[in-house]
Each structure stands twice: as C-alpha cells, then as structure tokens.
Computed example of a mutant assay.
Amino acid sequence: MKITESAVVELTWTLVERPSPNPPGGEGPVVDALVEYLEASPVEWTLEREELEPGRPNLVARAGNPEHGRLLLTGHTDVVPANADDWTGDPYELRRESDGPDGDRLVGRGVADMKGALAAKVVAAEAFLTGDDDSDSSADPGEVVLGFAIDEERGGPGTERIAEAVGDVDAAVVGEPTDLHVAIAQYGALDWELVVYGRESHSGRPDRGINAIDGLRCALNGVADLAEEVAAEDHPILEPGPTITVTEIEGGSAPHVVPGEARATVSWRTLPEGPEPENYDERMRAAVESGLVDAPPVEFELRRTLTVDAAGIDADHPLVRQTVAAAGEVGVESDVVGFNAGSDTRHLIPRGIPAVLFGPGTIEDDAHTVDESVAVSDLVATARVYERLLERYLLATDD
C-alpha cells in the first residue's frame, strides 16, 4: 500500500477527536482508536497495551523481523488543555481550512503536538511493511516498533516505560513539531525557589525591620552576574545557548509593612553533556551568596524544584545522516537544528537509544497555541520521510 493524503488525514482526524488534555490525561480513548486501527491493518501487528494509571495506557506495536534491525517511531498521546472560548471552533473537532499561504491546514488541539505525527508514523509503517511499487516488497524487513506514550506534557513516564519495554533498538524518532527539520539536541531545565527572610516592621520605621525585598534584589544581582557568565557559553546547535532567567517574584504582605519574606523562581536552561545537577546547585548558591555580601542581614533558603535533563546526539551520528538523507529523497530540505523545548528524547538517549525529533509544524507557531494547526502537505511529507527512513534502516540498503 502507498501513503496517501486521505489515509494520513483520516487517522489524524480520528486521533484529534479523541480528546486527551493533560491534565488530567485520559489518553485511553486515543489508544482505543489506535488499537482498533492497527487490528484492522493489513500488517499483523503484535500489540502490547499497558495501563500505567487508570485510564492512561501506553501502547507498543511491533511488526517485522528484529534480526534485521529495529527502529522505534514514538510519540505522546496527551495534549495540553484548550480553552474552547478562545478558539474559533471546537478544539477537538478537527477542521480543514483552505486559506493558508501554504495550502490546506488541519486545525485542532494536538494536530501539531503531536497527533498528526502519530498518524504519519502509523501510515508510514503500514506502507513500508506491506511494500509498494517503489520498494523491495520481497525483502524480509527489520522490525518496526511503534510507541504511543502517556504523560509527556507533565514529565514523560510513558516514554520511560516504553524505553524499558522495547529494549535494544537501533534508533528512535520522536514526532515533535520541528518544521520538517532534524532536531538533535534540547536544553535541560533546572528551577530553584529562592526565599529570603528579613524582619517585618511598620514602613514608618523601616529601621526597625530588615527588608526581605531589598535582600532578594541583592541576591538576584548575584544571579544576574552568573547569568552573564553562563551566556558566554555556546553550543553548535542550540541557540542562544544556556540561559538563566528569573521567572517569578513575590514579596510583601501590605502597603505599609516592611516585608519579612520575599521569594523568586530562577530557571536555568542547560546544555547536553553538562555536569550533575549538584554542580548547578553549588554555582547558584555561590551566586546568591555573592549578591548578599553587601545586602541587609537577611537569611535565605535555596531549593531546587525542577530537574529536567538535557539531551543530544552528535550531528554526524548515522541516525542524523540517515534522517536528513531520507528527507532529501522525498523532496524535503531538512536542516540539523536544536529544539527549544523539552521532549521525550531525554528518556531515550541516556538509555543508549540514539534519538532525533522530526515532525510537522513548529514549536513557535503551532504547538500549544489557540487554533493549533498543521499544513496537510507537511503532514503527508512527514509520513513519506518516515517511510523512507524505515527503508534505509530496515532493508539494509544504505550505510
């Protein structure tokens, strides 16, 4: 069978119209639809459904000969919530619009992040495993492993479990929206809560108190110096490189009270292959202490509240070369890029599974947006790239 626009669009339609906003999750209906589709497929899939939480199942589908290689095409079935009042239509009723500069677009929550890519993976795998006039249908192909994971939007335990369940695979492709480019690296994220303690007094007698906001300001001056130091580092793919940003500030209890407590959230976007989190803790604490040298005599607490690992593979890795080549062979000009968001590759690469991101749509303009959309032509192109990559990996005809 061949990849057709109708096949990709229809499956995308089915998946988008099974809402799975996270929170709370509830990916079960999406998996039900995938199981129904795969059981009716001309490919004899082996299906493994695992309930990680009530109503929240992972799904792994396998077909092909693992002795001839194994490639994992994976992605998440949850989406971010949508406020229907902000949308021009029901977020979970997919619609097709024809007035875009790049042709028809599909509009619906999750179409770019990432139910469209999931549909493209399934259709591409079917086309590869059944063969068509352009492929060697007499070959004994390697194993295609399809992974459908829960809860990416809030941590990624679904993909952690899939990585354990599939074991030794040659490589993986995650369908995040990359605008049809090959994303090979993503930032990590470390957040801290910084709380500064002073002493309350009436604002008419500030000399009787110790102003915690003044102390916090001084502490954050030290953080700003560290941010400037960190910004001097660079990365060949990720731009602008590592950053430190103050994202929240809170302090004061009333207009005429010298504040006795003030707090801030500090977020550090880190590079792949960096040191252990404890090293960042030490540098952040030293920065706060340096800022407080000339501050009022306050005390502080610094607590790390988020730890997300960075992840990446080398630009010359065979998976990267193969994916770029596969894209070129179906007419897609694909560059090697970084990914300025989190993804489930952070649960694959540390386990020894090389992984890249490739999918339709963009993080900047499509994912998590009101009236989220993706170009139909890009969706079909994604399926064709996946199919060609499967041929290159699992028919052993290249490299």
Rank of each mutant, 00 (worst) to 15 (best):
M114G: 05
G89F: 02
V43G: 08
D132M: 08
L106V: 09
D78M: 04
G108V: 00
V122M: 01
E36P: 06
L129Y: 13
S135T: 15
D133Q: 13
L52N: 13
A63C: 11
D132E: 09
D134L: 14
D113K: 06
R62H: 09
V31N: 02
G108E: 02
D104R: 07
A33S: 14
V43K: 10
A124W: 00
D140F: 07
R70G: 06
W87P: 08
R96Q: 15
W87F: 08
V111H: 05
D78Y: 02
V35T: 10
A63T: 04
A33G: 06
L34E: 04
K115H: 09
F128L: 05
R70N: 08
K115D: 09
V35W: 08
L129M: 08
R109E: 08
A84E: 15
A112S: 15
T130H: 06
L52T: 06
E48F: 07
A117Y: 02
L52P: 11
R105F: 06
L73K: 00
K115S: 05
P81G: 12
R56N: 14
V31Q: 07
A112I: 05
E53D: 13
V43C: 11
N58W: 11
T46A: 13
G110N: 03
L34W: 03
E51G: 10
E48I: 11
G69Y: 11
D102S: 13
F128T: 00
A124F: 04
D32I: 06
D32V: 04
G103T: 12
S135H: 14
D99V: 04
R62L: 10
D133K: 11
D136H: 12
E27R: 00
D113R: 08
R70L: 03
S138D: 15
G89D: 15
D136V: 08
D78W: 00
W45Q: 09
T46K: 14
V79H: 03
L73F: 15
V107A: 03
R62D: 03
D85L: 13
S137L: 12
A82D: 05
D113H: 11
E39T: 14
R109L: 06
T46D: 12
